[in-house]
Nucleic acid binder design. Structure first.
Length: 131
RNA sequence: GUGGAAGGCUGGAUGGCCGCGGCAGACUGGAUCUGUCGAGGAAAGUCCGGACUCCAAAAAGCAACGGUGCCGGGUAACGCCCGGGCGGGGCAACCCGACGGAAAGCGCCACAGAAAAUAUACCGCCCCGCAGGUUGGGGUCCGGUCGAACCGGUGGGGUAAAAGCCCACCGCGCCUCUGGCAACAGCGGCGGCAUGGCAAGCCCCACCGGGAGCAAUGCCAAAUAGGGAUCCCGCCAUUGGGCGCGCUUUUCGCUCAGGGAUCCGGGUUGGCAGCUAAAGCGCGGGUGGCAACACCCCGCCCAGAGGAAUGGUCAUCACCCUUCGGGGAACAGAAUCCGGCUUACAGGCCUUCCGCGCAU
RNA sequence: CGGGCUAUGGCGCAGCUUGGUAGCGCGUCCGUCUGGGGGACGGAAGGUCGUAGGUUCGAAUCCUGCUAGCCCGA
């Protein structure tokens, strides 16, 4: 299982957007993950953020991935769920249009780090990328 | 009061906001709304036993291999559970035991020691001989030494010195009888020391086991070229061969003339079933049983995904720690199902029993 | 779902079958040879044998349970 594992758990994109100002779309294909992997990245204690500016389209797309280092399937799923909650909360307002984001879980921290601190981490990482 | 032993239970609660999976219903057949259900005692490790399905064969048995191993019972079955026996540990409650066979056979027992399994004779001990010694022959296994272990133990008799050589008791073995379904226990008698240890070395004996696993298996749909090879049967021909061709397709025309099995190549990785009401659960009741458990009645309905949903976050209460800011909250996540075993586990609760101290 | 293998000095491996002494190569340290380096030679240190139990007088070795890693089949 590589970092480019397709995000099979991603739910319907429209369901994600319910009640939110901007729709989030999921990254599904391995090639899309690989493209984002070559893009600039910011590492935080709770996760790693990658962002790739696309040429076409204005929607924000986001993908989640966890390697086996994070733990067994339960630990990986919990890490991805927390990352998904983060993205739902912050990306529609702080994200940049026409960008693909990939959030990568880190062993030991993604499932345990304080959620407020992770929100700050994500906002700071987004500012850093845009500057 | 304190220290233990055994058995059982529990594994935070409530409410916002956002979100996930199954099922049912509603609605302009849209990817919406409503309702409802949604992890464990170990779901874990995958160590045993089954159910179920297919394969091979036959209702069996044998060989090989593997497993189990005191006795009796329970169970669908078990390597599990209950009861009993024997051995060991603990003052006790109680706990632990791979607990058949070493007088069927093979093998191993390092070092040390005289000697390690058909026993042996180093230092001693005793007797006899002579050339009287740093000596020769014999007796003996009593004492010493070694070791994890050395060929019964203690006491007495006996002797040149000794020895189950003889005797008593203990141990061991055999036999009869008694109790018990049995393992086994007990009384009595006999034998006269034989049988060192290791079977988690090979092995022997008794009993059990055909193989594979839900990615099993069945059905539907789609897709590909109804392709190739071999064999069998059939037909025509008879040295070797052929079983099709034309046409967009069917009808049709020409021709003596197509069926089966296995394998290879190629294609498909969609849907449904299997699938969860079950050898089910109940600190509900009754009967039988010491018990495990069985039977009857009553009540309950408790995930079914199809690479995996059961979550995230905030607040309050309860618990633990605190330097009063705050921090912590175990082991762990269903994948066909069930019965066990094993392993992991913060904290808390209940019942019964034993020892010791104090008071009465 | 089922099956198999491995774990031994810092690294790579023997030893396990048939139980009694843990060994080899590279590396490390010290010394000598050289003007010095490399190299050679001599010497030395370094191992709870993955872990917890059991069998045995005695276990790296035999048995059982865990832990970690790797591989195979459907």
């Amino acid at each position: 299982m590589s970092a480019g594992q397709p995000e099979q758990n991603l739910s319907h994109p429209a369901a994600l957007s319910a009640g939110l100002p901007l729709r989030l779309y999921g990254l599904k294909k391995r090639s899309e993950f690989l493209a984002a992997a070559r893009a600039p990245r910011i590492a935080t204690p709770g996760f790693v953020l990658q962002a790739r500016k696309r040429d076409e389209g204005a929607e924000i797309r986001v993908g989640f991935t966890c390697s086996k280092k994070v733990g067994n399937s339960i630990a990986r799923n919990r890490a991805k769920r927390r990352l998904r909650a983060l993205a739902r909360l912050i990306l529609p307002t702080d994200g940049h249009a026409g960008t693909d984001y990939v959030l990568i879980g880190r062993a030991g921290n993604t499932g345990e780090r304080d959620f407020k601190m992770m929100q700050d981490d994500l906002r700071r990482a987004l500012r850093k990328l845009s500057s």
